[in-house]
Simulated scan of single mutants.
Amino acid sequence: MTLAPEHRAIYLTGPTASGKSAVGVHLARLLDAEILALDSMTLYRGMDVGTAKPTREEQGGVPHHLIDVLDPWESASVAQYRGWALEMIQAVESRGRRVLFVGGTALYLKAMLRGLFDGPGAVPEVRGRLEAEAESLGDAVMHARLATLDPATAARLHPNDRRRIVRALEVIETTGSPFSTLQCEHDRAAPASVRVFALTPPRPWLYDRINRRVLGMFDAGLIDEVQRLQAGPRPMGSVAAQGVGYKEVIAHLAGGADLRQTIDLIQTRTRQFAKRQGTWFRGLSEVSPISIEPVESAEVVAQRLAAEIVGD
Rank of each mutant, 00 (worst) to 15 (best):
Q90M: 03
Q183R: 15
A189M: 11
G278V: 07
R234M: 13
S180V: 07
L12W: 05
V92Y: 00
E58G: 06
E135N: 08
A240T: 10
A240M: 01
E133Y: 10
L36I: 15
E58R: 13
V102C: 10
T2W: 10
P191F: 10
A37I: 09
R56S: 15
A298Y: 00
G237E: 09
M236Y: 01
P72H: 07
D187A: 15
E135V: 07
W84G: 06
I250S: 04
G115F: 01
D264A: 12
D264K: 07
D118V: 11
W280P: 01
L3W: 06
R129F: 10
A76Y: 03
Y246R: 04
G19S: 07
L305D: 01
I89R: 02
Q230I: 08
G61A: 09
P151S: 13
A140C: 04
L109F: 02
T2F: 11
L27K: 07
A274F: 03
V194M: 05
D312N: 02
D264W: 00
S94K: 14
G283F: 06
H7D: 09
T153G: 05
L30G: 05
V99E: 02
E293H: 14
V62D: 04
N211K: 12
E133C: 05
M217H: 14
G256N: 08
V62H: 02
V300E: 15
Y81L: 11
A240H: 04
L31T: 03
S193F: 04
D312H: 13
G103A: 06
A28H: 06
A9E: 02
L107Y: 07
R167N: 05
S21Q: 06
V300D: 14
I165V: 14
T16Y: 02
G283Y: 07
A134C: 08
Q90E: 13
G283L: 11
R97F: 04
D219F: 00
Y11N: 03
A85F: 00
A140M: 14
M47G: 04
Y11D: 05
E248P: 00
R167V: 05
S285T: 13
V49P: 00
V69C: 09
A52N: 12
G243F: 10
M217G: 02
L229S: 00
I263Y: 01
V239P: 00
C184V: 14
R56V: 15
L27F: 08
S238L: 14
D219A: 15
A122V: 12
D264R: 09
R269C: 01
A28L: 07
S193V: 13
A154Y: 06
R271Q: 15
I290A: 04
L305W: 02
E93T: 08
V295P: 00
A241R: 04
D71R: 15
I67G: 01
Q227H: 06
E293P: 01
T262S: 02
A17C: 15
G119D: 02
G128T: 12
